[in-house]
Design a protein around this nucleic acid. Structure first.
Lengths: 104, 104
DNA sequence: ATATTATATCGACTTTCCCCGATATGTCAA
DNA sequence: TTGACATATCGGGGAAAGTCGATATAATAT
């Protein structure tokens, strides 16, 4: 996980919003998991379409953003059927905060 | 201090290096303060030329970077005679680390 | 006054990022 | 197998960032 890639990922308001919305998915995405059968539930994950709707950007842009944030190490994803669910990688983010506190 | 401007400022390897060098100026800039008479000493501040030399970028680029980091709130500067000394704004950086830990 | 030195700013060019629509891929339902 | 839907990827046009050399500004020394 390269710090510079993380900072680049955070250098955009929409992406920053997405990351913050995903801190409380049930609050910001009320219909979260509507498609997900319980037996495959992915705690805290939200599908691309729901994020796109809230972010008010094009589908391709949001897909691209999520992929970028995942490559930076901020998000993780799982695909169930035709949906891809993204959620925060809390452990990675915690480590980043620690990196920021001690190395920056 | 806008988080996005801070993240942009940190999205560049040279700038990140400069910020980290300035954590220990006496270590990374041995001739630090050579020009500074004691009575106007600016603790931890390093002049543009010394930073440029170490950063291996053009004078204009380094000047631009330092100004950008200052506007983002990471650095503060004082001018003594023909020299401008830059140092970290530790309090601002501490607050940023806290922002990262609680809001990101 | 003039020359020298340190820093800032300007103008230009290149590279990267932003963001979209169009299209491809994968999955499910009929 | 066909159609509908969710997501990913491609290609591109415009905006911003990276970076430099040239020049301007400011301070100092002679």
């Amino acid at each position: 996980m390269e710090p510079i890639d993380v900072f680049k990922a955070l250098s955009n308001e929409t992406r920053l919003n997405i990351l913050q919305w995903l801190k409380e998915p049930e609050k910001h995405f009320p219909k979260q998991g509507a498609h997900l059968p319980k037996e495959v539930s992915y705690k805290g994950g939200v599908c691309v379409g729901d994020i796109q709707e809230k972010a008010k950007a094009s589908q391709s842009t949001v897909s691209h953003y999520l992929n970028l944030m995942q490559k930076a190490g901020l998000l993780e994803s799982v695909r169930y059927g035709q949906w891809t669910y993204y959620r925060r990688d809390e452990e990675a983010i915690r480590q980043l905060a620690e990196y920021f506190r001690t190395e920056i």
